[in-house]
């Protein structure tokens, strides 16, 4: 499906495939016992992101332009070397579900065993997000807010513009239109 997303030239079909891909990823997260992440993936990846992509397609065009460019051999070599390096790096990673893995040794025993006593709420994902790691969550909220500010600055906030063309400023400081 990922290959299809890259190869298909009709952007409407690509958007739909991306949505289906997000939904499949959400079901995968449910299988991995991560319902919080699955809910986010289903709502954001398969919902809002697709709506925004469709909104963009409505503003532009739904057919990708094909550029015939000479193939860059050096880029291919760089991609292969980077990919091989990344795969080599994964060889050192602990096996899936290994209880001795560093991620399960550092702070997670405390979060999983004592968060109910310390915070007093049963969902430990919420207590990690909103209490132990609240500063990270604050960063997320600020990032989302800044993203909105960026979009509004680039394409406007959807507010109907009231101001009219007031013309250019003439050398004597007045404008050529009232």
């Amino acid at each position: 499906m990922a290959i299809a997303i890259v190869r298909i030239r009709n952007l409407f079909a690509v958007t739909m495939l991306t949505g289906i891909y997000s939904l499949l990823a959400a079901s995968l997260f449910v299988l991995l016992d991560a319902p919080d992440v699955a809910l986010t993936e289903a709502a954001v990846g398969a919902g809002i992101a697709i709506i925004l992509m469709l909104g963009t397609l409505a503003l532009t065009t739904s057919e990708e332009k094909v550029h015939k460019k000479p193939q860059n051999l050096l880029a291919l070599v760089v991609v292969f070397i980077t990919g091989a390096g990344l795969i080599y790096g994964t060889l050192d990673m602990p096996h899936f579900g290994d209880p001795e893995a560093p991620a399960h040794q550092h702070v997670s025993p405390r979060y999983t065993q004592e968060s109910v006593d310390e915070i007093g709420i049963p969902n430990m994902v919420t207590s990690v997000l909103a209490s132990y790691r609240a500063l990270d969550t604050l960063g997320e909220a600020v990032v989302i807010f800044v993203a909105m500010v960026g979009v509004i600055m680039v394409i406007g906030g959807g507010v109907k513009r009231r101001w009219r063309d007031r013309g250019r400023v003439l050398p004597d400081g007045k404008r050529d239109k009232p």
Binding site: I48, I51, L52, G55, T56, A58, L59, T126, A130, A134, T137, L138, E140, A141, I144, F145, A147, M148, V151, I152, I155, G156, G157, G158, V159, K160
Partner: peptide, 22 residues
Amino acid sequence: IELGVGITVATVAIALFYAFAG
């Protein structure tokens, strides 16, 4: 703080939709 996050995320999603659809 979850209320703060919720308000921000909901309004940012609506604002992005307004920006694209408007």
